[in-house]
Amino acid sequence: MLFYSFYKTLVGKEITVELKNDLSITGLLQSVDQFLNIKLKDVRVEEEDKYPYMLSVKNCFIRGSVVRYVHLPASEVDVETLQDHSRLEAREQKKAQQQ
């Protein structure tokens, strides 16, 4: 659930999602769910001529399983908190295993 929580902190920020079919979509992150499905607002596409079907789309839902990369705004990512949380999660997992 770490990355789900992480994505929730990025809601409203502009991200670029690259899909496994090479399409990259930039837009404002509207919402995210536990499968890391992503909803984007005010989308735009780099090569619009190549993907004419994106011309009429403003908001879209991207299935989590087709995402290759997500390009994040570096200034919005608090790396230290992220590290702390992953350590915490690792510790909890260890504890659960020992029990």
Binding site: L19, N21, V43, V57, V66
Partner: peptide
Amino acid sequence: VVILGEIDPDKE
């Protein structure tokens, strides 16, 4: 499914 895009009448 890859994308579900809402068709915007203005952009259409």
